[in-house]
Structures are given as C-alpha cells and as structure tokens.
C-alpha cells in the first residue's frame, strides 16, 4: 500500500524543494517568531507576511488550493480555544449580543489568535510539503536536535503507515463478517479493534527492537548526515530574513 499524507508533493522539483532542509527550518522558525511578535493592530504587515508565504507556495509549485485546504484543518482546534475570547473584554462595547458584550479589544485578541496561528500553519505546510520527511529529519538532526527526538519522529512516521494498514485490514475483516451491525455491536467491535491495535503495536515494538539489537544497536543512535549548504541556501536565507525584517520594521 502506498501512502503519503504528511509530505505529499514533497517529491516535486522546484527551487524551494532543492533547498537544504536546515535553511528551510531556520526560515520557518524565524517566520514563526516574527509573526507571533508583531502586534495585531498592524494589519497590513500580516497581509505582507501572507504574501511572502504564498509567494513561496507559488515558487514551490505546490497547489495553492491544497495548502489552503490543509491549513483549514486547524480552524476547529484554534476556534475551540479562541471562541470565548471575543466575550472576555471588560472595557464596554458597542457590539452587544444580549448578555454577551463583544468589545473591540477582545475581538482583536480573537483575530490575533486566528490570524497568527493560520499564518504559522501555512508556513509549516510549506515546509513539510516541500521537504521529504527523511530530509526534514536529517535537517533537524543537522540543527542539533537531540537524536532521541529525531528517532521518535522517525519511528512515528515509519510505523504510522503500518498501523494504518493494520487498522484497514482489521476493519475490512470485521466488515466481511458482520451484516448490518447495531450501534452497540459496532461500538463493541471498534473497542476490540482499538485494543487489538494497541497490543499489536506493543508486540511490533518488541520485534523491531530485536531487529535493531541484531544490527548492533546499543542504545546510542548513530546517523550519517549528508547535508551540504550551498550558495543557493545562503541566498534564500538572506533574502527571506531581510524581507521579514523589512516587513517588521517598515
């Protein structure tokens, strides 16, 4: 079975795809920091940040529609957190809905959370959809992220697909043997499947660990990193950072 949900489009070829993952990770984090620290009242700055990110999307040939669609996934999560914010102001207000008072400052706070998190997510989508996951990991490792974390991410990525396959097989096996289950029956079956998945993952963990030990794993993870920064990466970082600072300052 073939999957690619995290790093779909990461195998395209574009100037953005070819960049060293470290350059992209550094660019992403500077972007996040600068966006988060810009006051929300400066609306035009956010428009420019958005333009900057989306110009990267265009250069990278990743479909804009895909990026937007994927970025909307976070709205329910952020929305849940931010939904109460407009009502929390206490400086009186003009927009009143019965007992709830919406004040401009509180509304601004709400916008603050929504706009910033959305921009950050778009930037992260640009990173993950222009960098194959393995290169992303190598980039993180090259930036001195502790190897344990890199390995955890790596295993997560590798075994998500296997778990997904296993789940699919179990669901199919259930469907093959059940005819019009009642609600209670299907909940029971779902419970069994989840439990089964846990046990199977645990056992797989044991077998994978045995396979690692068989090949000389002694608790210390050693990796070969083959990343090389070139002038393109330097150019990208310079341009990107100066544009960011320009937007922030001017």
């Amino acid at each position: 079975m073939r999957h690619s949900f995290l790093d779909r489009y990461s195998s395209l070829s574009s100037p953005i795809h070819r960049l060293d993952p470290r350059a992209k990770i550094v660019a992403l984090f500077s972007f996040l920091l600068i966006v988060v620290f810009t006051p929300i009242t400066l609306g035009q700055k956010f428009a420019l940040y958005g333009a900057l990110v989306f110009s990267l999307v265009v250069i990278s040939k990743v479909p804009v529609k895909f990026v937007i669609k994927r970025s909307l996934v976070i709205i329910p999560f952020v929305g849940l957190v931010a939904i109460g914010l407009p009502f929390l102001g206490n400086d009186g207000g003009s927009l009143n809905l019965g007992v709830f008072a919406i004040t401009p400052s509180a509304l601004l706070l709400f916008l603050n959370v929504i706009v910033k998190s959305w921009l950050c997510v778009v930037a992260m989508i640009v990173l993950t959809s222009t960098t194959p996951f393995s290169r992303l990991l190598r980039g993180l490792q090259g930036l001195k992220m502790p190897t344990v974390f890199v390995m955890i991410l790596s295993f997560m990525y590798r075994f998500t697909f296997i778990l997904e396959d296993e789940l699919e097989r179990m669901v199919r096996a259930r469907e093959a043997r059940s005819f019009k289950p009642t609600w209670l029956q299907s909940v029971k079956a779902a419970g069994n499947i989840i439990g089964n998945l846990l046990v199977r993952s645990y056992e797989r963990g044991e077998r994978v660990y045995a396979a690692m030990r068989s090949r000389g794993y002694d608790g210390e993870i050693k990796l070969i990193s083959e990343l090389k920064m070139n002038s393109h990466d330097a150019l990208f970082i310079t341009i990107f950072l100066s544009l960011l600072i320009l937007i922030l300052v001017v």
Binding site: S134, S154, R158, V208, R215, G216, K222, I224
Partner: peptide, 20 residues
C-alpha cells in the same frame, strides 16, 4: 516491516555498518 525502521532505504541498510 519489523526489520526496516528507518525513513529511507539507505539509512536502513547503513544502520548496521554505522553501528559497527
């Protein structure tokens, strides 16, 4: 699937030799 646990084939095949 128990034996291949690295993100790429190269890293998987290199895992043993690197540990050596």
């Amino acid at each position: 699937d128990d034996q291949l646990f690295m993100p790429t084939v190269f890293e998987d095949v290199a895992f043993g030799p690197v540990n050596l």
